[in-house]
Structures are given as C-alpha cells and as structure tokens.
C-alpha cells in the first residue's frame, strides 16, 4: 500500500523538517499570493467610494472568516460540521458577558472568546473522535450540540435567556466599535487574513499534511504513526477558535445577540456554504466562495427585487446549478483540465 499523498507539492512533506522551515520553504508562492490579496483588499477602501459596496465587502470578509474556520476542519480535515454555530455563539456570548457583566473592554472578549471557542472545539473533537464518529455521524452530533447550546442559552439567566444581550454603543477602536464603515472593514479584513494565513499554514505544514493524510485514509495514516485523533482534535480546536472570533465580530458589529441569532442553524449553514462553493480544502476557497455567494445574492435581488421570495428562490437555483456544473468548487476551476474532475 502506498502512502497517501500529502496535499503539498513536496512528496516528503510527512517527514519534512519543523513546520516553520517548511512554511518558509515550500510555500513562498502562496504566502506571496496571500500578501498580494491582502494588500489589494487593504487598498480597496481607497478606490471603493460607495459605502454600500464597502459594507458588502465587509460582510463577505466576515463570511470568509467563518468559511475559513469551517474549512480547516471540513475541508482540510474532511470532517463536515453542521453545527459550527456552537463556536460562533460561544464567542459572541463570551464577548457580551465580559462586557456587560464584567465591564471588561471588548478586546478581552475577542481573546477570551477565541480561547473558549478553541477549548470547546477541543472538547467537542475529543468527545466525538474518541468515539470514532465520522461522516454523517459527526455532522449530526455537531448539529445537535449547537441545538443543546441554543436551548441552554435560552434557559440560563446570565445569557439573558430569550431576551438576548446588548452591548452599549461606544465608539473607538479600543472598544472594537467603529464610527466609520472603513473601521469595520479593516477589522473584518484583519480577522479574515488571520484565518487565511492559518489556512495557508495548515495547508503547507506538517500538521496539515498529517490532517490531509487522516482525511484521505485514516487507517493508512494511523499505520504511518500519525495520531489521527489528536490531529483531528487539534483541527477542531483551531477551527472553533476562528469561528468564535467570527461570533465576537458579529457582536461588535451588530451589538445585539440572542440564542437563535448566534446558535441557530443559519450560522452553521453560512460557514459551510462558502468553502463548498469556493473549493473545499483550498486556502482561497472560502474567500472565493464568500464573494461569489454575496454576488449571487445581489444579482438575484437585482433581478427579482420586486418579488423577494422569488429572488431567494433564484439564489437557490443558482446554487444548485453551480454544484451541478462546478462540482469541485469555483476555486478549482482552472485545475479541472489538469486533474480528472
């Protein structure tokens, strides 16, 4: 039996030197690409004069963050989660509770939220993977987890139960609230770039190679001496932590959360849609997917704005058509000729 090919270009990835060296070596091109994209996006507000377009891009970057978070576990790790809202909600509630009940500044919420998201990811991963859950079973357990947290948030007093929580209107970068649309744009961009950088690291590191090996053939990976459970738990933690940061962003942007808004299935769906459309298990897939979906949604609204339900239906139709004709995602379009589809 031959060893499952790691996803990186170098066949020796599995026994490559420490991650940092590898990161510098094999991935210079990808780092350069990410840097270029980051710079272009950072310059965008200088060109984009319309606030609506800036908001559109801000929300697409926020969606990129959620998608990248999901993609680390779902794309690189092959473990589909239907309940990523669980991490998102934990992040949002951590931020809100620290600000409202403890009077702490917003940035502590971002740190603590991400930490708790990571810890929750580790816990969820540990429970699920120890019991050997895979495929649909893992997906369903995450789905149920999100529901359990939604019901808990709805029932305990310190989350405000069904009433939800609201943070005070302040303005200033220290409060992670911004007077201008540009402020939120750069906040979203910073978070999205962190998520993309982490994705890029995962894609090219030894950790990522091990994760891909586990995804492609878990038994073979184990035979190679990879601790599959530990790798998957780590991926879930990483994914959960980034997703939680998304929850904090939501809180800072919209100031009000309730159990359905942050633990509801809509969040989980938003997280998985982008990467699948853009290209599962690719670094830029979530970015491409998020912008493409946002664009499709705008196109549908433009086309049938007078009948909102029909424009939503059109959005659904485009989604189906895209899956049918671009089965490997938009991001892999150019690869179709090279590899067999």
């Amino acid at each position: 039996m031959h060893t499952p090919a790691p996803i990186g270009r170098t066949p020796a990835a599995a026994d490559a030197p420490p991650a940092v060296v590898h990161l510098l070596g094999g991935t210079r091109r990808s780092i350069r690409l990410l840097g270029l994209i980051g710079m272009a996006l950072a310059c965008a507000p200088l060109v984009v004069r319309s606030e609506f377009h800036l908001t559109f891009m801000t929300l697409a970057l926020y969606s990129t963050l959620l998608g990248s978070a999901w993609n680390i576990l779902g794309g690189f790790g092959g473990q589909y989660s239907f309940g990523h809202a669980v991490f998102f909600g934990l992040g949002a509630y951590t931020g809100a509770i620290l600000q409202v009940h403890a009077g702490l500044p917003a940035w502590t919420g971002l740190l603590a939220g991400s930490a708790i998201g990571g810890a929750a990811g580790a816990a969820l991963g540990a429970i699920s993977f120890r019991y050997g859950l895979r495929g649909s079973y893992f997906a369903l357990v995450t789905l149920a987890m999100a529901e359990v947290f939604r019901i808990i948030a709805n029932s305990v007093p310190f989350t405000g139960a069904g009433v939800g929580m609201m943070i005070e209107l302040r303005s200033g970068p220290a409060d992670l609230q911004f007077e201008s649309r540009q402020g939120y744009y750069y906040f979203a961009l910073a978070l999205a770039l962190v998520a993309l950088a982490v994705s890029s690291w995962v894609r090219h590191s030894r950790f990522g190679a091990a994760l891909a090996a586990v995804r492609d053939n878990e038994d073979a990976a184990r035979a190679l001496g990879i601790d599959a459970t530990r790798i998957k738990v780590a991926a879930t933690a990483l994914s959960g932590s980034l997703m939680a940061a998304g929850g904090v962003f939501y809180l800072q942007y919209f100031h009000y959360i309730d159990p359905m808004l942050v633990f509801g299935p809509a969040v989980s769906v938003e997280a998985l849609l982008g990467p699948i459309v853009g290209g599962l298990g690719t670094v830029l897939g979530p970015l491409i997917g998020a912008f493409a979906l946002a664009l499709v949604s705008q196109v549908a609204t433009q086309a049938l704005g007078q009948a909102p339900a029909l424009s939503m239906a059109l959005y659904g139709v485009i989604l189906i058509v895209m899956v049918t004709f671009l089965p490997r995602g938009l991001g892999r379009l150019r690869l179709r000729r090279g590899r067999h589809a």
């Binding site: 769906v269 849609l273 699948i276 959005y315 989604l319 189906i320 899956v323 089965p327």
Partner: peptide, 15 residues
Amino acid sequence: RDENTLLVTLGLSIV
C-alpha cells in the same frame, strides 16, 4: 461528493 449532495439539498430547500 457528499458536500455536493449537502449543497444541492440545501439549495432545493431554499428554492
């Protein structure tokens, strides 16, 4: 591909 089935049934439900 499982993810495609997921997406297509999701898309169907939206439609």
